[in-house]
C-alpha cells in the first residue's frame, strides 16, 4: 500500500472514531436528556462520517487499487493527490469550526471541491484497461 493511501485511510479511521463518538453522545442525549448543546455536534457527526470516513477511505483505497502505470511514477502525479489529501482534510477541519468562523462551511466546501478536482486529475489516466 503506498504511503499516501496509508495517510488517507488512517485519517479516515480517525474521523470514523470521532464521528461515532459524536453520534454516540447525540444518541445518549436522546435517551437521557443530560446536555442539550450536544446537538451542536450533529453537523460534525455527519461531516466526519460521510466526508471524513466514507469518502476519504474511498480515495485512499482507489489510489492504492486502481491500475498503475508501467513506467515512471507508477501511480501518476502523486503530488496532485498529496495536495488533494491536504486540502480535503483542511476542508473538513475548517467545516468543524463553523460555529466560530462564519464562512467556514463555504471555505471548507470549496477546499473539498478543489481536493476532489485534484484527485480526479491525479488519477484520471489510471482508470484504464489492464495490459494483456
Amino acid at each position: 500500500m503506498p504511503r499516501l493511501s496509508v495517510w488517507l485511510i488512517r485519517a479516515s479511521f480517525l474521523y470514523l472514531l470521532l464521528g461515532l463518538l459524536f453520534g454516540a453522545l447525540i444518541l445518549a442525549e436522546k435517551g437521557l436528556v443530560f446536555y442539550t448543546p450536544v446537538w451542536n455536534l450533529f453537523p460534525l457527526h455527519v461531516e466526519f462520517l460521510l466526508i471524513g470516513w466514507l469518502f476519504q477511505l474511498a480515495l485512499g483505497v482507489a489510489f492504492w487499487i486502481v491500475p498503475r502505470f508501467g513506467k515512471g511514477f507508477s501511480r501518476g502525479p502523486e503530488g496532485l493527490v498529496w495536495a488533494a489529501f491536504i486540502l480535503f482534510n483542511f476542508g473538513i477541519l475548517i467545516i468543524a469550526l463553523q460555529f466560530w468562523i462564519a464562512p467556514a462551511i463555504l471555505i471548507g466546501r470549496t477546499a473539498e471541491v478543489c481536493a476532489g478536482i485534484l484527485f480526479v486529475f491525479g488519477t484520471w489516466k489510471r482508470i484504464k484497461p489492464q495490459k494483456a
Binding site: 479511521f13 470514523l16 453520534g23
Partner: peptide, 26 residues
C-alpha cells in the same frame, strides 16, 4: 439508547484497533 450508543462506538474502536496496523506501506 445510552447502552446502544456505547456499543456502536465500541465496535468502531475495535475495528480501528484491529485494522490500524494492517494499513501500512509496502
Amino acid at each position: 439508547l445510552v447502552l446502544s450508543a456505547a456499543l456502536q462506538f465500541a465496535s468502531g474502536v475495535l475495528f480501528v484497533i484491529n485494522s490500524w496496523k494492517r494499513v501500512r506501506e509496502k
